[in-house]
C-alpha cells in the first residue's frame, strides 16, 4: 500500500513500470507475496490430493488384503454360504451380509415414517418457539456417541424387550433396529426438515388457494416437492445404519447364526469384524475374510454416494 502511494505521485511511465510484476521499488515485497501465494496454493492442492490419497489408500489396502481370502476360499462359498466357522475353515459370509441388509431394512422401516412425520411436525406444524427449541435438541442428539446408544440398548431396551416378550434373550435384530432407529432418527428428521422447509411458500399458497386443507397440501404438494431431499436424508440414515458398529455390537448378540426371528442373537458385517479382528493373525485367511467384509461395506457406502450424486444431478437438470 505504501509503495503504491509513492509511485502514484510520479510520472505516468513510472506508474506503468510499477504495475509490471517484479519491477520498481517494491520488488522484494511483491516477489515474496507472489511466492507465498503460490506456495499456499500448492499446499492447498497437496491437501486436497492427500484427501483423495487417503480414500484410494483405503480402497487399495482393503481390496489387496481382502482379495487374499480367495486363495483358500471359493468365491461362491464366501458369498453364498451361511456357514461361518473359521476355526474349521468355513468362511461363509452370507449370514453377515444378510444380517446387515435385514438390520438396515428393519431400521428404515421403523425410522423413516417416524422421521418424516417429525420433519413434517417441525417444518409445518410447530409454533416458532417450539421449532427453535426442538431443532437444536435434535442436532445435539446427532452428536451423542454411538457407544452411548449401545449402552442404552443393552441396559434399558433389552430388559424391556425381555419383559415384554417373555423370552429369556432379547438380543437380536429388533433390539439393534430400535437402537439404530433412535440413532438415525435425528439425522433423517433434520435433513428432511430442511428439505421441507426449503419448499417455496408459493406452492403452499397455491395449494391452499385451491381449497386444500393442511393434510392435502402436505401430502400432495409439499412432500412430493421435497421428495428428493427426503430420499437424500434416508440414504444418509441408511449409510449410518449400515456402517454403525459399536451400538450394534452391544445389542445384536454376536452369534454367527442366521436370524430367522427378530429375537435371535445374530451378527452383521460390522459387529463381526470388530469382535473378531483383534483375536486373529494378520496373515491368516480369517483376517483376510474380515477385510473382504470390510471391503464389501466400503463398496456399499460408496455406491450410496453415487446414488446421492445421481439424485443431485437429476435435481440440477430439472
Amino acid at each position: 500500500m505504501i509503495e503504491m502511494n509513492s509511485t502514484a505521485q510520479n510520472a505516468p511511465a513510472e506508474l506503468g513500470n510499477s504495475i509490471r510484476t517484479g519491477s520498481g521499488p517494491s520488488f522484494d515485497r511483491r516477489t515474496r507475496l507472489r511466492w507465498a501465494n503460490s506456495a499456499f496454493r500448492i499446499a492447498c492442492i497437496a491437501a486436497a490430493g492427500f484427501v483423495c490419497l487417503v480414500l484410494f489408500g483405503i480402497l487399495f489396502l482393503m481390496f489387496r488384503t481382502g482379495i487374499l481370502t480367495f486363495q483358500e476360499v471359493g468365491f461362491a462359498e464366501f458369498f453364498f454360504s451361511t456357514d461361518w466357522d473359521p476355526e474349521n475353515g468355513h468362511y461363509g459370509a452370507l449370514l453377515f451380509i444378510y444380517g446387515t441388509i435385514a438390520l438396515t431394512a428393519l431400521t428404515l422401516i421403523i425410522s423413516v415414517p417416524f422421521s418424516v412425520l417429525i420433519a413434517v411436525f417441525l417444518a409445518e406444524m410447530t409454533p416458532k418457539w417450539l421449532r427453535n427449541t426442538l431443532r437444536p435438541v435434535l442436532d445435539l442428539l446427532v452428536g451423542i456417541p454411538s457407544v452411548v446408544y449401545g449402552y442404552l440398548g443393552l441396559t434399558v431396551l433389552i430388559p424391556w424387550l425381555r419383559d415384554l416378550t417373555g423370552k429369556p434373550l432379547a438380543d437380536g435384530l429388533l433390539a439393534a433396529a430400535i437402537v439404530l432407529t433412535i440413532m438415525v432418527l435425528p439425522t433423517i428428521s433434520r435433513v428432511s426438515d430442511d428439505a421441507i422447509t426449503a419448499v417455496p411458500k408459493k406452492y403452499r399458497d397455491a395449494s391452499y388457494a385451491l381449497g386444500s386443507n393442511r393434510f392435502q397440501t402436505i401430502f400432495r404438494v409439499v412432500l412430493p416437492a421435497s421428495s428428493r431431499g427426503i430420499v437424500y436424508a434416508v440414504i444418509l440414515g441408511m449409510a449410518r445404519a449400515i456402517g454403525e458398529t459399536m451400538a450394534v455390537v452391544m445389542v445384536i448378540g454376536n452369534t454367527a447364526q442366521i436370524a430367522d426371528s427378530l429375537f435371535k442373537p445374530t451378527a452383521v458385517l460390522t459387529s463381526n469384524i470388530v469382535m473378531q479382528i483383534s483375536s486373529v493373525e494378520f496373515d491368516s485367511t480369517w483376517n483376510y475374510a474380515l477385510y473382504m467384509m470390510g471391503f464389501l461395506l466400503l463398496v456399499i457406502s460408496l455406491l450410496m454416494i453415487v446414488a446421492v450424486r445421481f439424485l443431485q444431478k437429476k435435481g440440477a437438470s430439472e
Binding site: 489408500g57 489396502l61 450424486r309
Partner: peptide, 20 residues
C-alpha cells in the same frame, strides 16, 4: 467425490485401514 466418498466410509473401515 473423493471427499464425499471418504465421508461416507464407515468408521470401522478406518479402523481396519489403521491396522493394516
Amino acid at each position: 467425490i473423493c471427499v464425499e466418498g471418504l465421508s461416507s466410509v464407515p468408521s470401522i473401515i478406518f479402523g481396519l485401514f489403521g491396522i493394516a
